[in-house]
């Protein structure tokens, strides 16, 4: 039981990362039916930009840990958001009507970002600053670190904020409309390219947020860090029902917890096998994912 609870805590932490990244996949898929294979690398760029911001702040002798953390997050999210828009503009927008070419373009964007990080930063692991020791909690044998609580709670807050943007604002209404029928949205005066670009921006900021917190949580980052987690977050999005925002959140947390439990009861070497085995079973039973209904129209 202790193992289960401890792994639940760890799983919810990692699940927060998966969910935040999965939202970017699912939003882009929901509105333009594109799997943005570069999204995992956008997350990696977010982590690196956070690291650069911390380095810069140290040079400027800003050393209040809370201020540093917040600035790192905000700068990284803003810049990564713009980068996401740039990827859309350069790699996807010219090819929106060429389904196969756009797939190649996505792989190209992914490799460009990965090896851009490789060249600009480093081919080896980089160490993230250890900014502050948040007091954790111990409940019996289970320990929850302060950082885990921050990751989980702030992740939930961002997910809720995204949900409110999509369902309560005018731009969110435009996003949902163009997910249903792009030409009909154009006839309402909606500039589809602007709304899609904004979707890339929002998804990329969430990924950058996850990237910076990943750095703080694991203390190290590498230029390839987005590859596997990108695949997993994509899996989480499919698991929840791709195109569906609550589905991405459910899928992310579920995948995180399954992996945690698998690591706890089998071994961390087997965790991916066990977790993905369960995922395959779920998808066989529910091919459209847990919350997916039809292939279209689900934001």
């Amino acid at each position: 039981m202790t193992v289960a609870l401890q792994q639940l805590v760890n799983g919810l932490t990692v699940g927060s990362f998966y969910a935040l990244i999965a939202l970017g996949y699912t939003m882009v898929y929901g509105i333009i039916r594109l799997i943005n294979f570069a999204h995992g690398d956008i997350y990696a760029v977010g982590a690196f930009l956070g690291l650069s911001t911390y380095g810069l702040l140290r040079l400027l002798h800003v050393d209040n840990p809370i201020l540093t953390t917040l600035l790192g997050l905000v700068v990284s999210m803003g810049c990564t958001g713009l980068l996401g828009m740039l990827v859309y503009r350069v790699a996807y927008r010219p090819l929106l009507h060429a389904r196969l070419s756009i797939l190649i373009s996505a792989i190209g964007a992914s490799l460009t970002l990965e090896y851009g990080l490789f060249l600009i930063y480093s081919p080896s692991f980089l160490v993230y600053p250890h900014l502050f020791d948040t007091p954790g909690m111990s409940l019996g044998d289970i320990s929850v670190s302060g950082l885990q609580i921050i990751i989980f709670v702030s992740g939930l807050v961002l997910m809720a904020a995204l949900y409110l943007i999509v369902h309560r604002t005018k731009i969110g209404m435009a996003m949902r409309a163009l997910a249903i029928n792009q030409d009909a949205a154009r006839l309402m005066g909606i500039d589809v390219n602007r709304v899609v670009a904004l979707t890339f921006f929002l998804g990329s900021t969430l990924a950058a947020f996850a990237g910076v917190l990943t750095g703080l949580y694991y203390s190290q980052i590498s230029f390839l860090m987005g590859f596997l987690i990108g695949l997993k977050a994509f899996t989480a999005a499919v698991l929840g029902g791709i195109g569906n925002i609550p589905g991405a959140v459910v899928g992310g947390f579920l995948l995180g917890v399954l992996e945690g439990l698998a690591a706890g009861y089998f071994s961390s070497r087997w965790k991916d096998v066990v977790a993905f085995g369960i995922l395959i079973v779920i998808l066989v039973v529910r091919p459209r994912g847990l919350l997916g209904e039809r292939v279209v129209e689900r934001m």
């Binding site: 005018k170 209404m173 949902r176 249903i180 029928n181 030409d183 006839l187 309402m188 005066g189």
Partner: peptide
């Protein structure tokens, strides 16, 4: 348009508000 193209999963009210998007 032919075929109406209403935003089927959205409410009547949201459809009308989208008309006033500009």
């Amino acid at each position: 348009p032919e075929g109406r193209w209403i935003f089927s999963l959205m409410t009547v009210d949201e459809n009308l508000r989208l008309g006033a998007y500009a």
